[in-house]
Write a protein that binds this DNA or RNA. Structure first.
Lengths: 240, 240, 240, 240
DNA sequence: AATGAATGAGCATTCATTCAT
DNA sequence: CATGAATGAATGCTCATTCAT
C-alpha cells in the first residue's frame, strides 16, 4: 500500500510521501531542467519585478511575489540583483530606457514647428496612456523623492534626447515666427508632461472625486485635444 | 443644512468637535496634561499619521513610528482607529476635508470671469505648493488605485464645491462671451489640477531628468504664469 | 451647517460631531438610565459569560465579547467579578448548581429499583441533551484538568445528592434481589455519565469519523435504549 | 492499494517518509546535527505542538511555547506549517493516524466473537488510558465543534478501519448466534468509545465531584470489567 | 454604584535576506 | 550556476486589566 499526496495552498510546495517500501514520487525526478541562459533569467526577473513594483510600490512589493511571477526562484533574484532595492533600481532604469527609446522613434523633423508640437503632444498623450507600468513606477519613485533615480547616472542621459527634440521644435518655430521668442522648451515640456502624466497617474482620485467620463474613450479624445490646444497656445504667444 | 449619517463602529467613544470647518484645537495648544481628552488624542494621532503616511506610503508607514510621533501610545491608535488601514482612510478624509475647506475661503464672485479663472489657477498653484502632505497622500492613494478613497462616502461630497466654483466661472464667462461656449468645466478643472499637482508630485523625477531650476522660486513663478496662460487660452477659444 | 455621524463597526461607539456653532447630539444625553439592581446586572453578566465560555473555552472567550452580550459594560464585569478567571469560576458553579437542582426534581422513590434505574438513565440522557452549555463547560473545565472546580467548595456539596439517589436505588435493589449485591453505585453512576456525557461532548468528532445518523432523533432514541439496557444489565448481574 | 491526492501548498518543500504506517524516524534518534533535515524538523515541531495544544488547547497554546519545546525556531513553524491553525490541524491528523495505526495492530480474527469483543473493549480501555494527549486533542477539537476535523479529508478514511473491525465481530457473532441479530456495530462502537473516552476525558471533574478511587489502579481495573460486562450484555441480547 | 479612557505586555505573523550544498 | 533550508528582526495587532472621575 502506498499513499502519496501533495497539497499546494499558498505557501510553497509540500510533498508528503508515504510508502510501504519504495519512494514513489520525489518531485526532483520529474522536474524539467530549464537551463536558461542567464540573460533570459534576468530579463524574466526584471519583467516580473516591474509588474510587482508597479502594482504595489517599493515597500508594498513582496520579493516572494516577484519570485512567484518568475520562472525561477527567489534565490535567483538575490543571486543576480543583490537585494530588493537594487532590483527596483534596475527595474526603474529599464523602464526609462524602454520608454525613451520608443519615443526616439518619433520623427518630427519633417513637420512644421506647430504641427510638430501638436504631433508631439498627441504622441506623448497616447504613449503615456499605453505605458501605465512606467507611469506608476515614476509615481512611486516620486513618493520616494527620486532617491533611487538620482543614484542612477543612466537616467539623465536617457532623458536628454527628450528635451533636445522639443528644443529643436522651439528653435525652428522661433526662426519662422510661429513660436514666441521667449518660450522655454523646458517649461513647454513640463506642461506637456504634466497633462499627459496626470491623466494616467491621478485618474483614480480624479475619477472618484469628479468626472469619470473624462477617462472614457471619447473623454480622453477631448482631453487630448484640450492638451494640444493649451500647449500650442502657450507656445504661440502671450495671451490676455 | 444638516447631514447626519450613522455607521456605528465599536472602537471607543469619541467626540471630535470642529467649528465651522476649522479644527478648534490644534495639538500645540494643549501641551499640558490632556489626560481624558479623547478629541485631542485623536487629532494628535491623525496629525502624526498624516506625516508618516505622506512620508512612507501606506505599506511603508510604520505604526510604531506613528506612535512615536504622537504624545500617546501605539495602543491608543488601535483603540481609536481599529487598524492601520482605517487610520489611513481617516487621514485621507481629513486631508481632503482640510484642503477643500481652505479652498472654500477663496471668493471669486466679484471678479470678471477670466480674472476669476486666473485667480483660481494662481490660488490652486500656490495652495498645492503649500500642501505637499496632501499631494503626497493623493499620490499614494493613486498608487493604490483609489481603493480607499472610493470607500469613503465623504470624499465626493467634499469635492463637489470645487467643481461648482469653476462651473460658475464658466457660466458667467459664457454669458459675457469671454469664455467659449463649448468649454467643459470638468476639463478645465482637469487641466488646472494636472499642472498644479504635477508641479509638486513629480518635481523629483522631473528635476533629476530635466531642469531643476524650474523648481526654484523664479522658475515656479514662470510656471505659474505659464499655467495661467495655458488655462485661459484653453478657456477662451479654439487656437491654431 | 452641522454634520454629525456616528459609525459603529466592531470596536466601540464613535461619535464625531461637527458643528458650526452648537453641538447637536452627544450620546450621553439620549442614553436611558438602566439603573438596574446589582443582582440583575450580575445575573445578566453570568448568563452572557456562560454562553461565551461555553462557546469558546476559558482562553478562547473574550471579555469584550462577554461585555457585548451584556446589557452593561466591560467595566462592570471587573467591578463585580474581579477578573476573567473568577468570572469563569462563578459561571461554572452556577452551571452545576442549576443542573443539579433540576435533577433534584426527579423523584424515583415510588418506582421499583430497576424501573427507577431505567428512569434515571433516561432522564440523565435527556437532561444532558438539553443542557449543552453545561456539558461544554464541564468539557472545558476538564481540558483545564479541573483546576477551577477543585477550588470550589460548593461543587462537591452540590453533587452529593446525585450519588445519594443512585445509592438509594442500589440499596433498594439489593434488598429485593433485583440488583446484584456487589454493585457499586459510583461505578454505575460513572457508566451512566459516560454514555450521556459523551453523547453530547463528542458528537462532533464521532459524527465526522463514524455515523452521523446516531445523532438524529431516531438514532438518539436507539442510543438511549442501548444505554438503558447496558446500565441495567450491569446492575443486574454478572454476564458472560 | 494506492491512493494519491494532490493539494499543492505553498509553504516549503517537505518530504515526510513513513514506512507501512509507522514513523520511520522518531526525533530522539537524531539528536545530532540535523541541519538540512526537513523531515526531522517537521516531526520535531509536530511533536512539540501536540504537547502544547493538548495541554492548553488551540487558543491557549502559544506559538512561542511550541517553538521553545522544539529544537528549531518559531520561524520554522511558520515556514513549514503556515500558521497556528494549520499546525493544529496537522497535529490532529497526525494524532489520529498514530492512534488508529496502533489499533490496527490488534488482531481479533482468531477469537470467538464475544471473546473478541471483550478483548476489543479491554484494548480500547487500555489504549485510551495510554494516550491522554490524543484524548485531550479530541476533547479540544470537540470544544471547537469539530471544525478542523471536518476540513480534513484524511480523518474519515483513517477511522474506517475501526468500524470495520467491530462490524466483523458482529457479523461473526450473528452467524453463530452469540450476538443478537439486530445489534448495530456503530452503536456498540459508540458505547465502547463513550466509556473509554469519558474515563480519561472527565476524570478530573468526576473525581472531584464523586469518587476519586475509581481512577486508582484497582478502581480502573473494576471500571474496565464493568465496561466489558455492559458492552457484552448489550451485544448479547435484550435485557429486562 | 458606575463608567469612559487608557495601557503594558504579549501574540501571531511577515519579510528581506543568508546559509550550506 | 543553481537551490532548498533556514532565520533575526521587526510588524501589525490583541487582550485582560487599571486609572481617574
Amino acid at each position: 500500500m502506498s499513499i502519496a499526496f501533495n497539497y499546494s495552498v499558498h505557501y510553497a510546495k509540500v510533498t508528503l510521501v508515504y510508502l510501504s517500501g519504495l519512494a514513489l514520487m520525489t518531485d526532483t525526478q520529474t522536474r524539467k531542467k530549464w537551463k536558461q541562459d542567464p540573460e533570459a533569467v534576468q530579463a524574466n526577473i526584471l519583467a516580473a519585478a516591474a509588474e510587482e513594483f508597479a502594482e504595489h510600490g517599493l515597500t508594498g512589493a513582496r520579493v516572494d511575489e516577484i519570485a512567484a511571477r518568475t520562472r525561477t526562484s527567489k534565490r535567483m533574484i538575490y543571486y543576480y540583483f543583490g537585494d530588493k532595492e537594487s532590483l527596483y533600481r534596475q527595474v526603474l532604469e529599464e523602464a526609462y530606457r524602454k520608454v525613451r527609446s520608443e519615443e526616439a522613434a518619433l520623427d518630427l523633423t519633417s513637420l512644421a514647428p506647430l504641427d510638430a508640437l501638436r504631433r508631439l503632444v498627441e504622441f506623448t498623450f497616447d504613449h503615456h496612456r499605453a505605458n501605465e507600468v512606467f507611469i506608476r513606477l515614476v509615481m512611486i519613485e516620486n513618493v520616494h523623492k527620486g532617491r533611487h533615480l538620482s543614484e542612477s547616472s543612466l537616467i539623465a542621459r536617457v532623458n536628454a534626447s527628450a528635451i533636445e527634440r522639443i528644443e529643436d521644435i522651439c528653435a525652428r518655430g522661433q526662426k519662422d515666427g510661429s513660436i514666441r521668442p521667449d518660450v522655454s522648451p523646458h517649461e513647454l515640456h513640463w506642461l506637456i508632461s504634466a497633462a499627459c502624466f496626470f491623466n494616467i497617474s491621478n485618474r483614480f482620485s480624479f475619477g472618484i472625486s469628479f468626472d469619470k467620463s473624462l477617462f472614457s474613450e471619447p473623454g480622453q479624445h477631448k482631453l487630448r485635444a484640450l492638451t494640444c490646444d493649451a500647449v500650442i497656445a502657450a507656445a504661440r504667444g502671450k495671451v490676455s
